[in-house]
Nucleic acid binder design. Structure first.
Lengths: 117, 117
DNA sequence: GAAGCCGTTCACAGCCTGTTCACGACCGCT
DNA sequence: AGCGGTCGTGAACAGGCTGTGAACGGCTTC
């Protein structure tokens, strides 16, 4: 596993799960436990399409129940906070019927952002 | 069978059916379930002329009905997305009266593309 | 014990998808 | 060129998935 000092770096994001901290463009995000764990789960799978079940089992430590929307709700919370901290970038992409993919991408072509992915 | 880690590589395309993911020139495509399955069915038969019936039975899991145009419709959707992701290349070729063939080919000689097949 | 934060669950709106039509363009043949 | 059959393509539709704001109860902190 990642004994790489436990630092996940994706785009302008730097996540240190062990220190319960996530930094976006030099600014520390205010995340709850679940939010940070979900963010770490996504970031550690950067670029892959991750099924909800895998995310749920990683973060919640139990199999995903049929109609549990927790993942979706926390994805939304992360989107709001990430979009707030890094305007002009989209990090979480929905793959209909499967799950989500974590990868920095410009949200608008005409948007100019100082920091690259 | 392709127990090669379930990765289909055709031209600048890399398709991982198990992960429901297709990457074109490093960029993950946004494909629906049917689109990805059809793409995988085509890619796994690279260079062969594949009858509609075979494609339909592989993707839809049922025999093709006489006037069903689903395959054509999804071929079109794939063409749009592939042409968008890999301009200057044609991947899906029509063989009138038979079916389709999947193979990278320059769409226009004068078109310049950075990535080769 | 009041207020605040968190995680979970609901409810409803809105988007995406797969399917089917419709119509025009195209193909191969006479 | 004329014809009948194939294909390409845009659009309409119903149903299933997702996005999102809010309500609820449990805990922790003043």
């Amino acid at each position: 596993m990642s004994r790489n000092g436990s630092v996940l770096s994706v785009g302008a994001l730097e996540i240190r799960p062990d220190e319960h901290q996530a930094v976006a463009a030099g600014h520390t995000l205010t995340l709850s436990v679940r939010e940070l764990e979900l963010l770490a789960a996504l970031a550690s799978r950067k670029g892959r399409i991750v099924p909800r079940a895998e995310l749920y089992e990683t973060v919640w430590g139990a199999p995903l129940r049929a109609d549990d929307r927790s993942v979706d709700v926390y994805i939304h919370k992360l989107r709001v906070k990430l979009g707030d901290a890094l305007p002009g970038w989209r990090y979480i992409h929905t793959h209909f019927g499967f799950g989500y993919r974590f990868e920095p991408e410009r949200s608008h072509p005409f948007h100019n952002a100082a920091t690259g992915p």
